[in-house]
Design a protein around this nucleic acid. Sequence first.
RNA 1: GCCCCCGUCGUUCAAUGGAUAGGACGGAGGUUUCCUAAACCUUAAAUCCAAGUUCGACUCUUGGCGGGGGCACCA
Length: 533
Amino acid sequence: MIKSNIINYFKKAIKEKIKIEIFIPENEQFGHYSTNVALKLTKIRGENSIQIAEKIASDVRRRTSDVFNKIEVTPPGFINFWLKPKVLQNELKEILKKKKNYGRSNVKGQMSKVQIEFISANPTGPLTLANGRGGFFGDVLSNILEFQGYKVEREYYVNDTGNQIITLGKSMAATANLIPREENFYQGDYIKDWANKNSAAIKKYKNNYLKIGQLAAKNFLASIKKVLIKDSKIRFDRFTSEDRHIQKKNFTKKALAIFEKSGLTYKKDGALWFKTTQFSDDKDRVLITKDGFPTYFLADAGHYLETKKRGFGQKINIMGPDHYGYVKRIQAAAEIMGVKNSKIIITQAVRLIRKGEEIKMSKRKGEFIAFGDLIAEVGIDVARFFFLMHSPETHMDFDLELAKERSMKNPVYYVQYAAVRCDSILQKSKVKGQRPDINSNLLNTKEDLNLMRMLARFSEIIEESAEKYNPQILVRYSLDLAREFHNFYEKERVVGEGVDIDLTMARLELIKATQIVFENILNILGVNIPKKM
RNA sequence: GCCCCCGUCGUUCAAUGGAUAGGACGGAGGUUUCCUAAACCUUAAAUCCAAGUUCGACUCUUGGCGGGGGCACCA
């Protein structure tokens, strides 16, 4: 960890307790690494920023002569430094030694338990694109946190009881012409298909709409699981059933008792309310309706309580854009139920574009492109990479024609091609036999060093994307690394007639290290590495 | 009406308050006796508008304008 070492040098040189930030300048004229600590200290010390920078720089310079070639102060007060090749050559050995564990941290998470809930789409039909976006996001975020030493539980919460299941059952009955159709019923081919295939069951259970709905929900959930496991490779540890794990185990009642004990409940108009306004919600929310039914909010609180009882003090809940108005309420419930570290991430909508025009989608009307269909069209690697490239909070466009037409030019292939090129070189070299005495000091051209410097950033990148809960940072890095590697490939030769055998051996180690890092990245992203392209 | 998210090259996305705003696709031009040209190199092109905060603003604050979503004793 080059970066954290640099930070430590500065901690010794600076008395004040400020956060020391090290960043990598775009242009190498400002160093391999740079810091603005001197600028931050101007206010505290009341001195000129250049003078402060000079003072710190000379202090750091004294104790790091074996680490940096050069430490420089530039106006208005940045301190820039250039690494010695030796540092990178040592890091290379570290990569080769740790292999698939390179970049792993067991300090960050310290094996603390965190539950990540994602998708949790109602089993009333196929998964939508927004579900898929949240799915890839949750899956990869889980991978990242696991890589950082957290013990992660990936949870899909299934709302398999209650009103929307009854509505689903009624929708089936209406499709079988047993009852008149109503405005809010589910529509679409998948509803018709199910109703046709199960007409006997619909007639058998007649007015028991919950039962019919649950039968349909069971089938839909099975289809969803198939898409997750087979098509999208999104992994879950647990499918928590609202019916079996929450309601029947009385977690709703237990949650209600805890709400009442908090002293923040009151009766009004025959219903029982909870003061969510105390948690900066715009209005208070109902727990029990005047007819005596628990609300969805109360059931969700029960779910948080169940999570807490199973030992999770931390939970990350990834929800779709239709849950904006729900965040404050859930955070209030989490706090009351004792889930101390509760984070909610809302993924933004996905707009599907075909021939330059947006396709309007509505799940209830059955007018939408299913997630599984999209993967079938563009492939899992393209789909994963494309969704993950975008930060979850941005609204994104998915142009179907573009994804298909230019599928071979999709950025994911750029990264995969780099990994394939690594493998290709290593295959070629096998004819040549190995020599044990590798001299990594020979790796000293601009391209060698640039590539090594990029490789050394991996552990910093993975740490940053874990801290910010943002897989996109890792995706961007994979593109940067691929670019650096392709550039190296064009300019430097590894095996060939004109290349010195010792240099070839050293370069092969560099290629091995690059391959290791690509494998680590793509495993985390869930993207395949082809043998050939 | 109230609340939340987003406005960046032609298009689609980047940029912990830092230095010359970055990439991809598309446009223009170039590179192959040698490890895969799905690559590399060169080039044109952008911060919605207006104030404010400061050494320094795409980023923070306020007010506009534009796009999306949410505002149930539904889930």
